[in-house]
Amino acid sequence: MNRHPFLPQRMKIARIVDEVATHDILTFELVPLEGEIASYLPGQFAEISVFGVGEAPFGYASSPHEEGLVRFTVKRMGALTQELHRLGEGAVVGMRGPLGNSFELDRFRGKDLIVVGGGYAFTTLRSLIAYLLTPEHRGEAGRITLFYGVRNPGLFLYKPELEQWRDAEDFSLHLTVDAADEDWTGPVALVPDLVKEVAPETTNAVAVVCGPPPMIRFTLPVLEELGLREDDIFISMEMKMKCGVGMCGRCNLGPKFVCKDGPVFTLKELRELTDDF
């Protein structure tokens, strides 16, 4: 059979994790029905198929060191995610990936890392942090400071793992919510305000930002005020995509394609591409 760039690999849903109190975000653990999992890096994405419905892009939530499986965290949103959420463990879906660039791990080497995430877009940051916290990769970055905000405490993804990260060395975790519940003891603050208050050291740091557009918009000036250069701020972008290989024409920001040239861009690059930053 001819292989072509649009033919997905068949993957079995090995496990489904219900992530949040509202039950509309599920993590799908996929194992290949045939072949191997193609090697990937944090920040890359794949097109996930539900046969008969279509395809949509999702960032890898798993880290490459987790062998034999991949994970995608999916919010119920449109037609495809609706159907994906109806599938049970054992069902077979399609996967095309990895697609896109990744976080520029070489640029993080020897640097402190400030990671700023919000809402459901945290998935790709989980891949990055889990990767950098493995013993064989921990030396690739210095101190990691993570800011992660959601609307309310029930909406944090990967809660058991967040708890483990609290004890990690050279790692500080700053969780925040827009609105607390009775059990919440952490800060109630918008992500940009918390970043400003904590004011992590930036002399030898780079930052990674991924989240809803308003969070990104208000966080960027804070990071720049703290002393980060626009070349040291990395942003993972999202756009509607179909092909994932720079052909279908949807996801361009100016002359660059988010699917092929991104999804990770520096703030400097984004400022050259669009007026939105």
Binding site: F6, F51, G52, V53, G54, E55, K242, C243, M247, C248, G249, R250
Partner: peptide, 9 residues
């Protein structure tokens, strides 16, 4: 040459 990918069936 913009295109879409759709499932029919």
């Amino acid at each position: 040459s913009c295109f879409t990918l759709v499932d029919e069936g």
